[in-house]
Design a protein around this nucleic acid. Sequence first.
DNA 1: GCTCTATATAGACGCCGTCAAGATTGCTTG
DNA 2: CAAGCAATCTTGACGGCGTCTATATAGAGC
Lengths: 225, 225
Amino acid sequence: MTNFIPDNTLSSSKPYHHGDLRRQLLDAAASIIRDEGEAALSMRKLAQEVGVSRTAPYHHFSDKQALLCAVAEEGFRRFRVQVSFGPQAYSGGETNAALSPVLDEETIRNFIRNYIDFAVNNAEYYRLMFGGHLWKSQQLTASLKDEAHASFKLYVDQVRAWQQFAAKETAVDALRYAQVSWSTLHGMSCLLIDGIYLDSAAVAAMTDTAARMFWQQLRGSESSG
Amino acid sequence: MTNFIPDNTLSSSKPYHHGDLRRQLLDAAASIIRDEGEAALSMRKLAQEVGVSRTAPYHHFSDKQALLCAVAEEGFRRFRVQVSFGPQAYSGGETNAALSPVLDEETIRNFIRNYIDFAVNNAEYYRLMFGGHLWKSQQLTASLKDEAHASFKLYVDQVRAWQQFAAKETAVDALRYAQVSWSTLHGMSCLLIDGIYLDSAAVAAMTDTAARMFWQQLRGSESSG
DNA sequence: GCTCTATATAGACGCCGTCAAGATTGCTTG
DNA sequence: CAAGCAATCTTGACGGCGTCTATATAGAGC
């Protein structure tokens, strides 16, 4: 304790106040979950990881649940950045030149790829965002609930725009189509993340098949040429 | 200990050997998970529930993981009974008169309904059967792995038969179609079980939509009449 | 400089999974 | 029937967990 270097010119002298604890807790939590699984994350280990005492994290998160909610919230923010949601994503605006200016099967396929990629490569976030652990608990942060609902609304809007853009007449209700197609994406993601579908080579084929099914559904009963 | 009633003429005198412990442990475990969630299941509480000491269950299951695997196995057995798998389910054999003898959209819808019903009404089993908790652990019982693979194989066979029965020419590969459609069923089940999709009135509409999508996919590019 | 509040700490409590050692019972073999 | 053996059940113990309480330290505003 009685360090003979009195001031804080050396940042490594471990000051009493951490200064950036909340941020580092969130990062360390995601890291631990990614490397060792959600079950391996404990408040004590987390505290030790960032070099504070066991109870220090409780000054930034009321309990473990709140911390997990915060991690999930961050996941939703990344989610919306990576998975290009919204009607503008395909409608040829100047938002992103890499995205195709017309709606075709490849656009759908790219969207599915993005979704699956995010889920698999950010499994530690995805699991929290859409897993039952937080949602069943009835202790969701209000902000987390808002984030989630906003994401789903964006998806419904995107589907609605897809339908208006692609089909002559809407075969199925947009909301229902959104719910079912999201279920497909979510199901594939879960089966991959949870290690039930293991063959990674099959992922591309599954994505292609899903894209074809989505697309044919969007085109209604028209020929698939 | 020195009971003055020496013999076991009274069945309520709690004999040293339980006699039916394994079965009661499995039942109590499923019951606890159903009522209080998987997180609330502890070996100690489980032992207390059935009236034995904390370590008694370890003589029937090597550890908690093995117990959960056994519960999941039981789930697969129930699964295959309730969700009528296999080609014979629709092809008009004498197996079940209630099932329609021809393949149409309603057959698909009934199958989807069965699947979702099982998942929602046996959530405690479904979560274990298809959740990442067991599958990611790399400690799956061999018998559980067999049960799971057998179930998926049955589903693929069913899809293959559907395709042969319904479509003029196979639009997509049966295995891919099975993987994607199962993903849809699994995704819907997860979203319902985990409390993300709450509106139970929407379930019927989602089921209808999914059935229509599956069916149109089976019929290929033919008119949906 | 003094007080107030945010932040960090150690201590304690009751849970948890599970290992080790001993007690009790029923089956097998003589 | 007696002896031994294997299966079953018990108590005791260990370290880890979430989190409550009380206490110490640091920085901010008067």
